[in-house]
Write a protein that binds this DNA or RNA. Structure first.
Lengths: 207, 207
DNA sequence: TCTTCTCCATACGATACCGTATGGAACACG
DNA sequence: CGTGTTCCATACGGTATCGTATGGAGAAGA
């Protein structure tokens, strides 16, 4: 019955999810290597004693974090790719936009931290592989709905996916407006140059 | 006059470059966070005393490492994109191949480690930005030589670049052969769908 | 009230690492 | 031989972190 009507000096007991949330925030700013128990405890205004009550050890938190991330990403990609029939191309462009670094800085930082982690942690790699497979399938289904062949849909989904995260790795110094035009052009190309303007685009406008 | 004709119990004095090379190797396997002085010293069979003679502190090694990486990357991209006239499309596909994870695992690991580092270190971010700008310019020039407009060339270079590194972030579980076909298709599409087979490719072969 | 369970604080040993201080071995050179 | 330079070993103080052991406060029940 005492939810949050105590004076601010009081605090509610923590649970596992509170630690996991804090851990996610921490790896966004410090990377996976910065995920230290005592650092987390300080942020949560408690001591390690609390942590070791909720988790067996550091590894248990990492596993829980991976599981949390995986489930969130799976939920999200299904939400973002649930397209109305006939709106698949728009939905694809929407996906590119939503997953771009400029629109989702924190999410991208978490994504990159986990993927760098996955380069040398098999369990992280396994989770990343699962998320990749599901996201690729979702994107591929949208391309299939656009009438592309299996192979073409798979290839475009892969390109879209690689492009989105690859772009977030880049440190381009460019004018924001110019950048937006560039991204719009690329997105339009990935999601369907054929359906883009009804005609071929291989003859450059030549200024 | 004593170069390497001592018994194997002897070893040559180290210099800065030996430390830097070892540091590069270490971040490839352990990430930038794993770049520890005493760990490096153990690998080089010396103690910290040697390190602090060659470098002021840990940060100095990091800076030297960034500089080393930058110069190497700049040399490499110029080498890889130096195309014979009329061979630009082949050269572009060659670049995609050379920078792919399967062909250059260690280089990709270093690249990813440094880029993750750059997410939270301004100096690393600056170096990455310089490398990105030069690589983009090199790729763009190849597209320009193919007759594309400035804007189109910039867009394709960006896509190519983002794709290559984005792909290396993915953990796709797929048959190697199928994967190769997929990559070939994507590469062909990025480097010039127009010049690829002389006709449009937007009508799927439909099996 | 007494007990039990939940949640956390405290204290501890152990390890790893940073950077400094200082000495020493090997070599070059005069 | 004496001296300076190069390169490294050793020892030290200090910090951060891990995981454990143990006690304690507070709520919930009996």
């Amino acid at each position: 019955m005492n939810d949050l009507n105590q004076p601010p000096t009081e605090r509610a007991p923590l649970d596992r999810s509170a630690w996991i949330e804090a851990a996610i925030d921490l790896i966004a700013t410090e990377g996976v290597a910065g995920l230290r128990i005592e650092t987390l405890a300080r942020k949560l205004r408690v001591t390690k004693g609390s942590f070791y009550w909720h988790f067996r050890d550091r590894r248990a938190l990492q596993r829980a974090l991976l599981e949390h991330w995986r489930e969130g990403r799976i939920r999200d990609i299904h939400k973002q790719t649930r397209a109305r029939a006939g709106q698949e191309a728009e939905q694809l462009r929407h996906v590119i936009d939503v997953y771009s670094a400029s629109r989702n800085r924190k999410g991208i930082l978490i994504e990159l931290a986990i993927r760098e982690w996955a380069q040398r942690d098999p369990e992280a790699a396994q989770v990343v592989a699962e998320v990749d497979a599901i996201r690729l399938a979702c994107a591929r289904d949208l391309f299939l709905a656009l009438g592309l062949s299996e192979e073409e849909a798979t290839a475009r989904a892969t390109l879209l996916y690689a492009y989105v995260f690859g772009f977030s790795l880049m440190h381009a110094e460019r004018m924001p407006q110019e950048m937006e035009r560039l991204k719009t052009r690329i997105a339009g190309w990935i999601t369907g140059p054929a359906a883009e303007n009804g005609k071929r685009d291989d003859h450059p406008p030549s200024a």
